[in-house]
Design a protein around this nucleic acid. Structure first.
Lengths: 333, 333
DNA sequence: CATCGTTGATACAACGTTGTAAACCGCCCG
DNA sequence: CGGGCGGTTTACAACGTTGTATCAACGATG
């Protein structure tokens, strides 16, 4: 593997001059520049990033910490972050926490302070305040959970508003027994979506019944199916369900189908995340659609600014969302 | 950030002694060892991996190169590789090629030789032989495509056999006009699955009709839907479809539903990859189920052995598969 | 007592890169 | 003609770590 030294020897100049050419330093005699460039090509020189970063004190790596890649929302998001980071010449290290608190702690601890220039974290169990101690001095941008009181950069949609819009849509269909699937004791986003759900019901003059709020400890298809089964088995089953993500909704739709309950005729279903899976499922899924590309771009951008100036005041970026209406809430279907 | 030097100063020993303690060198006086360990804890020392790797000539990073994370099969696989690599104390760099030849070339080129100890590559457009020139000297393990003639480690299922089993299953249902969706001019796996499809038809004494083989330039839901639409619009539409992955199958099912064609009554559908999405879709999808965990483990293991001994002869690991039979091919449903 | 081997500790160099400061060149100006 | 100045190049040190060689101390051996 060719190093600067080899190139320098071949071009008959010093190592530093080669380094200067590589880094685009202006004052290099054209003649030398030509010779160096020739030597660079003929040796196939590639900088040793480890050495460069050791010298510069940066690594060029960013961590993307998220619960699980098998959750389509995170897979889509990861893809977009990868793309956005590529433009900034960052390499992305994806870490899965599996949603457990230990997983998140381990991940952040094991990354070590030297490995990464910063991290984009989509927390699930972890409280935001844990970050200070776990990743001391590492620039962090948080996704999803909204925690205004903490001095940490943050990107996300307005979960309360989004949930309210989703439930308002169900209200608009004339549904009155609207359930929610996805309540969770420790998840910030869950609390916010539940809040939006309650607000929408209150605005419509509908009662908020505990029996219609289903907890889901994970947000997988299986959890949605189980929750829906419980709801349908109850005395007064719902005529609409707002699920806190698309996977829960997919599970809910399946559980309904298995029991001969029609969607949307008997139960209308709204999901969250607007994954492609939901758009293709039968019936296609109405879903809250966060602008994932905007989230990814904003997160990478915020992290870049934070890395460049660690002292700047933390920023909260609110990205837009919309409601994609599909067959699972269309009466015609 | 504490360095060896800081720890050494605090413990009153030399830098090297601290290094020896950190690396578990045997001959350190118990007294000194104790002092060093104390200092390590109190300074919260974490080795600078960049420096360590610079010295050792290894990076501790492995690349996982795949087409797209939004394809559930790759997301699932990535999650499993992440897990398997973690046990080996490797960090995984996930790179998306977006399935284009340029993407794959760029990715491999940009990683550079210094960045990674090796790569696990799931090629799509790229020909296997391109790797030699693109990543000279980098240990590579290939996934999926079977290319016995090349001196590269390889992990995958027997695609011909798997496809044959899937189509044989459809034959067993009494279907006679069995279509295939997913033919592709440049994809090795596509060619193999098509081969298995042909074999199964031949064994059953059924003709192979070109009009029943649908090309898909990508393997997304949309492509499956479009291909299915073409097949259904033809003079003699199929009574069964073998899709080369689950996404194509999901799209195909949707296209059928939109045209009032019932699955499986009118058309039975088999997918490939056994993704969770398929298991929960309506109807649930019969699918060829590669043992993804085994693939991930084998790939990481093979790469580790290759890194440790670059001279060993290349190995081809054949991982098992099964056929998961679900509603999309069950007559009762 | 001289020699040797073992244990324990250290100094030094090196990995490949880049920032700093100094040196060199030619040229213009006083 | 000496001093200064901008352009151009270079030597050197440093980033944090670890392999090699060296060295000191010690008890055992001949």
């Amino acid at each position: 593997m060719a190093t600067l030294k080899d190139v320098a020897a071949l071009a008959g100049v010093s190592v530093k001059t080669v380094s200067n050419v590589v880094n685009g330093y202006a004052f290099v005699k054209p003649e030398n520049r030509r010779r160096v460039e020739e030597a660079l090509v003929s040796t196939g020189y590639r900088p040793n990033l480890g050495a460069r970063n050791l010298r510069r004190g940066r690594t060029g790596f960013v961590a993307l910490v998220l619960p699980e890649l098998v959750v389509p929302y995170f897979a889509e998001l990861a893809g977009l972050v990868l793309g956005a980071a590529q433009e900034r010449e960052w390499n992305v290290l994806i870490e899965q926490t599996l949603g457990t608190r230990e997983g998140e702690r381990d991940t952040l601890a094991s990354l070590g302070p030297h490995m990464i220039d910063g991290a984009i974290v989509s927390p699930e169990a972890l409280q935001a305040r844990d970050f200070g101690e776990l990743a001391p001095g590492i620039p962090v941008v948080m996704l999803g959970e909204h925690s205004v009181d903490l001095p940490i950069d943050h990107v996300g949609i307005d979960n309360v508003e989004a949930a309210r819009a989703a439930v308002a849509h169900l209200v608009g269909l004339g549904r009155t027994r609207i359930a929610a699937i996805g309540a969770h004791p420790h998840r910030g986003t869950a609390a916010q979506r539940l809040e939006g759900y309650r607000l929408a019901l209150a605005e419509a003059g509908l009662p908020v019944r505990d029996s219609l709020v289903a907890t889901a400890l994970n947000y997988h298809r299986r959890d949605g199916a189980e929750a829906m089964a419980r709801l349908l088995a109850a005395d007064e089953p719902p005529d609409a369900v707002f699920c806190f993500n698309d996977l829960l909704a997919v599970g809910a739709v399946r559980a309904a189908a298995e029991r001969g309950v029609r969607v949307p005729a008997d139960v209308a279903v709204v999901g969250f995340d607007n994954t492609e899976e939901g758009a293709y499922s039968l019936p296609s899924l109405t879903s809250v659609a966060p602008d994932k590309a905007a989230i990814a771009r904003a997160a990478v951008d915020l992290l870049r600014r934070r890395v460049e100036d660690p002292e700047r005041p933390p920023e909260h970026v609110r990205t837009p969302f919309s409601l994609e209406i599909r067959d699972s809430t269309r009466s015609g279907a």
